[in-house]
Nucleic acid binder design. Structure first.
Lengths: 218, 218
DNA sequence: CATAATGGATAGTGTAACTATCGATAGTGG
DNA sequence: CCACTATCGATAGTTACACTATCCATTATG
């Protein structure tokens, strides 16, 4: 029924589309042409919309992370990887293995911080390639942010794990992992913008501080 | 010429397309049908590709941040905003002003950390809406990450400002702001994934640690 | 039992980011 | 000096994605 549509705020054809794409499980059939939907469908639709609208995932990526939530045989540590990979899908690139300089920098920073991880961690090529870009664009000065970024990342990761630990069942934990990782990226981006203004103003006290408030932007 | 194409690795029709879209300035015309391109064109093309491929920006967003770099009358603090807004373009949403709970949480966290910012900071609605989503999805436990995320964001912002300060001219600074903000998001995402594995293994020591290395993923 | 609502399949729409074609010129080698 | 290839600019076509609309057979429901 399209009562589901009203309760979730998603158009009926779109719901059908998500079912076709295996994002949403089918309803329970009371007859060959009639299905019944429950709260799990509403919840799932809300999750899908959040992943796509807020997290910026593609439908294909959303399908993968949802599958990771539902796959009860999947270790939680893998769920992190699936979620993280879904976000970085926008970053084409899993192919090019990074020219090298960036990878060395990352390895050095990890070593410095006594952080040991598996060599197949998907974050490694991602971070390495960004550093390669910094070099290629002539912004070597940006490479210096690495140690600080890493410290910050550890803080965030600890908070992430804390939140996951607050959940009871495996299913809830998996969903927390996915939601926290995907939407958490947006949350951190917003806070980063806030922090940038805060730090800017700490360093360069603004004379016309009260005026800026009224200025409208183009 | 398409020597530019070779030097930049971008196809000729694509270069024409970028010029049409005002991402790339025209060459110097030596005749009505012949233009000359220099290093600035190569650099600009590399920047465009990095923003789009690594940063995941749309062509439209890339145009905006590039315009922000070139606009010499724009204060640097604004450049941060332009860059940050370009990333969050994927997050539709600048319209819905957040139901309220998330905004309150952010305000409380900022207050707790003695951080004061302008009310029109673009990070505010972004962070608020993510928190609203956490509530709506029933993941209240994730809201608890806010203070830690904020601490981490301040660390990152300080590193960002440090890097900017290492530049001399306004143009270099502006480009550092844009590159550091847009690509920095991907860098942090990668490091976050690394940190998640690191923290996971700290908390749950893995028995078959050496084996995992050889396991291939689907 | 007539009507309106599914469920499922198929086809169409709109946007974004390229990519290809074309015609008029114009620099270049022989 | 002249055929030949490249370039510029404009226009049109292509591909992928995320929906959205239409149809039809069936069927709950008043």
């Amino acid at each position: 029924m399209s009562e589901l549509s009203e309760r979730s705020g998603v158009a009926v054809p779109t719901i059908k589309y998500y079912q076709r794409e295996n994002l949403l499980h089918a309803g329970e059939f009371s007859s060959p042409t009639q299905a019944r939907y429950d709260d799990t469908h509403v919840d799932r639709l809300r999750l899908i919309r959040a992943l796509i609208d807020i997290g910026g995932l593609s439908v294909a990526s959303a399908r993968e992370v949802i599958a990771a939530i539902d796959d009860t045989s999947l270790p939680l540590t893998w769920t992190f990887g699936v979620a993280q990979r879904a976000i970085s899908t926008s970053v084409a690139s899993v192919d090019s293995p990074s020219t090298g300089r960036g990878a060395d920098d990352v390895a050095a920073a990890l070593d410095e911080a006594s952080i040991a991880i598996h060599s197949d961690n998907p974050g490694l090529p991602l971070a390495s390639r960004v550093l390669d870009s910094y070099y290629e664009l002539g912004h070597d000065e940006l490479v210096g942010v690495l140690p600080d970024y890493l410290r910050a990342a550890v803080i965030v990761a600890n908070a992430d794990l804390d939140a996951v630990g607050r959940q009871a069942g495996r299913s809830d934990m998996a969903q927390t992992v996915v939601v926290g990782t995907v939407l958490g990226d947006s949350l951190f981006a917003g806070l980063r913008r806030i922090a940038q203004e805060y730090v800017s103003r700490q360093r360069f006290p603004d004379p016309d501080d009260s005026e800026r408030q009224t200025k409208d932007e183009s």
